[in-house]
Design a protein around this nucleic acid. Structure first.
Lengths: 200, 200
DNA sequence: ATCGCTATTGGCGATGTGTCAATAAGTGGC
DNA sequence: GCCACTTATTGACACATCGCCAATAGCGAT
């Protein structure tokens, strides 16, 4: 059994190939239990090549997390701006639950990644994704124009609730989708009507 | 300069000494950047001894996280059961913010610990702490007697919001304590009055 | 003093990671 | 078709960390 011979590829293609494999592996087991050797072997490549394209293992992981978080971050611009507030909130929550449940595995992996025990860079990537989602929510709710720092902070808190609740929903399975929906909807409504006004 | 000679101690004392040092170190830098050698050296002990007392490095880390989470988990039984709901909620939130801000460093470290990128055991420890806090909240709110699984799940979601918001507050510093207080208070009120009833 | 228990040490083997010179797969020139 | 020439790819070296275990040496008991 002759292992497939060395094949030369375009750098971009090879890079993408390795990255795809890495996303799969890091989606299955935690960071510390995936070695660069594993990634290399699964990609049919020498280990040195992984370092060549991605630098350090953590750098590779950063790209992996970015890829995983890219999907859920797609725009929620489709919220009709002239709908009443409750309807808009309802749409936002529904859309969030749809996306999360569809890409559940990779989304869970990315969220659970929650940092290599507080690693600054990984946390930065996740924090940024949360911030993006936060301004998205603000925009969809109608407070999008130049939100204050405090308002963004509050919106990030809500996104944190959504993320955590999504995990609770998908991983534990003790909550029904309707219950999760109600929880996120009334929470967001309460915040928009009673809390956000305090932050300009 | 003669390094202090080998000193023989009671196993419990030595164990506690090492654990204390480990809590400090893991509170300063992330998991992967603290080697057992570091812990051993800081404790003035051979590296082998760390393994002898705690087994694997992750086992040591598990104990560290448990210690860090122990403080915030102290009882919030002091909520007066005959107060009106809003007053009780207010007390709970105040107490939470007090505890969190007082032990901010170790609390942040424990929360940020959020898992070695999804490590099952570490996540388990944190999840358990959150569950304990959740039933505490339910008890303080007046729904403590035999809460259903779904109700506990919802309460866990709220604790997740509190944890995340606490992080947002302490780490970013863009929200004032009053704002955080308002956010957590109205959220909990809304959940108790409108969402929790759906789960028995 | 010395004996015995065991807390403590130090080193071995295995595994993982980053780096770099050596190699060979393609591509274009002739 | 053959031969450079570029560079994608490899393999190995050096180093760090971890788990383990036999050997060592505190310290109380006799």
């Amino acid at each position: 059994m002759e292992a497939t011979r060395r094949r030369r590829m375009e750098p971009d293609s090879r890079r993408g190939e390795i990255l795809t494999v890495a996303v799969r592996l890091f989606g299955q087991r935690p960071y510390s239990e995936v070695s660069t050797t594993d990634v290399a072997r699964a990609a049919g490549v020498a280990r040195g090549l992984v370092n060549h394209y991605f630098g350090t293992k953590k750098d590779l992981y950063l790209e992996v997390v970015r890829v995983m978080l890219t999907v859920p971050a797609v725009a929620l611009e489709q919220v009709r701006r002239d709908d009443p507030l409750e309807r808009r909130v309802d749409t936002i929550v529904s859309w969030f639950l749809d996306v999360v449940s569809r890409h559940s595995t990779s989304w869970l992996a990315a969220v659970n990644a929650g940092g290599i025990a507080g690693d600054a860079e990984v946390d930065g990537v996740i924090a940024e994704a949360i911030d993006v989602a936060a301004v998205g929510v603000l925009g969809a709710v109608g407070l999008g124009e130049s939100p204050s720092e405090a308002l963004r902070g509050m919106a990030r808190s809500y996104v944190g609730l959504a993320v955590f609740t999504g995990r609770e929903w998908l991983q534990r399975g003790v909550l029904s989708r309707e219950q999760v929906h109600a929880l996120l909807k009334t929470s967001l409504l309460a915040m928009v009507e009673e809390v956000f006004p305090q932050a300009v």
